[in-house]
């Protein structure tokens, strides 16, 4: 398979700040690729390097095999859905969507027809005459999507596109985006700080930390076998066990990750701890136990007894659930 986007040892330094530092990355054509990380981790800068709004201070970027280091944004066949949507407030929805075709010189009736087609695709057929200010956040998001897709880009870049939507709408849009990507067979590159969003939507994802890629792989690989403590903590909200605790639990003296849902409370076990906090989640209760100075979370499914705060308990897990991450 061809790679849609390829980063070769790419860096973007702002003076002493290394926003992106030596990133190697390959995004396969037709994939839904997520860039996940906390704010300031370099994921958005990477996206802007692809669109051309940032220039790399080192390394090479290729889009479908072509080096783009000398290509300005308006000549790159990639389009972006901006975080704040960046719809033009003085144009109606139809002209917003048709903008890319207009600047490329397409005639009025033809570009309006194409814009209407795209608006139908995002289920906004009847909204062409409205101004962006008259739309809800979710509708604006769809307009931004239609405005990018109408140009038939080779790669679609999405910068936290769902960040401003409420939970219900966000979940609906996640499904819709995914369906749209499958239907169009387009390469989507998606930036998010929401691990659930990244895990549920992406075919593969890169986890960013401090300007570097901490791990790259499929959602399952990343969730089940985090490469570093950072990934385990950020992606899975996994328990990160220091070497002493791993050994006390019967493993080797290595750092290990243990998912809360694979951890259960037990009457007896090698390590006992005190219940520090309870958090009711609806589908279950998250019980935080302090054992040997480390906080370990266990997920107790709904319907099972939950200990009280301050109680002493042991905990158990399937041996396969313990993922080792080395001695340091």
């Amino acid at each position: 398979m061809t790679s849609a986007v390829e980063f070769q040892n790419v860096s973007r330094h702002f003076g002493p700040v290394k926003a992106v530092d030596g990133v190697d990355l390959t995004i396969a054509e037709g994939s839904f690729f997520a860039m996940l990380g906390p704010s300031g981790s370099g994921k958005t800068t990477c996206l802007r390097l692809i669109s051309g709004f940032e220039k790399p201070t080192g390394g090479a970027i290729r889009i479908f095999g072509e080096d783009v280091s000398a290509t300005p944004p308006h000549l790159r066949n990639v389009n972006t859905v901006f975080q704040d949507y960046a719809l033009f407030p003085h144009m109606n929805v139809r002209d917003n969507v048709a903008y890319g075709l207009m600047v490329k010189g397409m005639g009025r009736s033809q570009r309006h027809a194409k814009a209407e087609e795209m608006l139908a695709l995002v289920k906004l057929d009847a909204y062409g005459d409205r101004k962006p200010a008259q739309l809800s956040g979710g509708q604006r998001q769809r307009v931004a999507l239609a405005r990018a897709l109408v140009n038939e880009p080779r790669v679609l870049l999405l910068d936290e596109p769902l960040g401003a939507l409420d939970l219900k709408l966000r979940e609906a849009m996640q499904d819709e985006l995914k369906a749209l990507q499958m239907k169009l067979g387009l390469t989507f590159v998606f930036v998010t700080h929401d691990q659930h969003e990244a895990l549920s939507m992406a075919d593969s994802l890169a986890v960013f930390n401090e300007g570097r890629i901490a791990q790259i792989g499929t959602p399952q690989q990343i969730y089940d076998r985090p490469a570093t403590r950072f990934v385990a903590d950020f992606v899975g909200s996994s328990n990160v066990l220091p070497p002493e605790l791993t050994r006390a639990l019967g493993g080797p003296a290595e750092w290990a990750s243990l998912r809360p849902e694979a951890t259960r409370l037990a009457a007896s076990g090698p390590v006992r701890g005190t219940v520090k906090a309870l958090r009711y989640l609806g589908s279950g209760t998250r019980v935080v136990i302090e054992a040997n100075g480390t906080e370990v979370a266990a997920l107790v499914p709904a319907g099972q007894p939950v200990p009280e705060e301050g109680a002493t308990t042991a905990f158990a897990f399937d041996p396969g659930a313990l993922h080792l991450m080395g001695a340091n």
């Binding site: 944004p73 308006h74 000549l75 975080q83 960046a86 033009f88 890319g100 490329k104």
Partner: peptide, 19 residues
């Protein structure tokens, strides 16, 4: 982001200025 959006959609500097 308005300027970036216009460049992203293929506008030259002159087109971005005018539109």
């Amino acid at each position: 982001s308005m300027l970036e959006a216009s460049a992203d959609l293929g506008a030259t500097r002159a087109q971005a200025f005018r539109t």
